[in-house]
Amino acid sequence: MKILIDIGLIIVAFLSMECVAWLTHKYLMHGLLWILHRDHHRKEQQGFFERNDFFFLIFALPGIACLTVGSAYGVSVVLWIGIGITLYGFCYFLIHDIFIHQRFSIFRNTDNWYLKGIRRAHKMHHKHLDKHDGECFGMLWVPFKYYMEPGQKAAK
Results as ranks from 00 to 15, higher is better:
Ile106Ser: 13
Tyr92Ile: 03
Tyr114Val: 15
Leu115Gly: 13
Phe107Ser: 14
Phe90Thr: 10
Phe90Tyr: 04
Ser105Tyr: 07
Asp111Ser: 11
Gly89Ala: 04
Asp111Thr: 04
Lys123Cys: 07
Tyr114Arg: 02
Ile95Leu: 11
Arg120Gln: 13
Tyr88Asp: 06
His122Ala: 08
His122Trp: 09
Phe99Ala: 13
Ile118Gly: 09
Ile81Arg: 00
Arg103Lys: 12
Tyr73Lys: 02
Phe107Leu: 15
Trp113Gly: 04
Asp97Met: 12
Ile98Arg: 02
Asn112Thr: 02
Ile83His: 03
Tyr73Val: 03
Ile81Lys: 00
Asp97Ala: 15
Ile98Thr: 11
Gly117Leu: 11
Ile95Pro: 10
Asp97Glu: 14
Asp97Leu: 10
Thr110Ser: 15
Phe93Ile: 05
Arg119Gly: 04
Phe93Tyr: 07
Tyr88Pro: 01
Gly89Arg: 01
Asn112Cys: 12
Val75Gly: 00
Ile83Glu: 03
Cys91Met: 04
Trp80Ala: 00
Lys116Glu: 12
Gly82Asn: 04
Phe107Glu: 14
Asp111Trp: 06
His101Gln: 12
His122Gln: 15
Ile81Thr: 04
His122Tyr: 09
Trp113Val: 11
Val77Gly: 00
Leu115Val: 15
Phe90Cys: 08
Asn109Trp: 07
Gly89Ser: 07
Cys91Leu: 02
Gly84Trp: 07
Cys91Gly: 03
Val77Asn: 00
Ile81Ser: 00
Leu87Ala: 08
Phe93Leu: 13
Asp111Tyr: 05
Ser76Lys: 08
Phe93His: 11
Ile85Trp: 06
Ile83Arg: 05
Gly117Arg: 14
Arg108Asp: 14
Lys116Phe: 11
Arg103Leu: 10
Asn112Met: 05
Gly74Ser: 02
Trp113Lys: 11
Phe99Gly: 09
Asp111Lys: 12
Ile95Gln: 03
Ile100Trp: 14
Lys123Met: 08
Gly82Trp: 02
Arg119Tyr: 15
Tyr88Cys: 09
Leu115Glu: 15
His96Asp: 14
Asn112Val: 07
Ile95Glu: 12
Asn109Lys: 15
Tyr88Ser: 06
Phe99Asp: 08
Gly82Lys: 06
Tyr92Gly: 08
His122Pro: 09
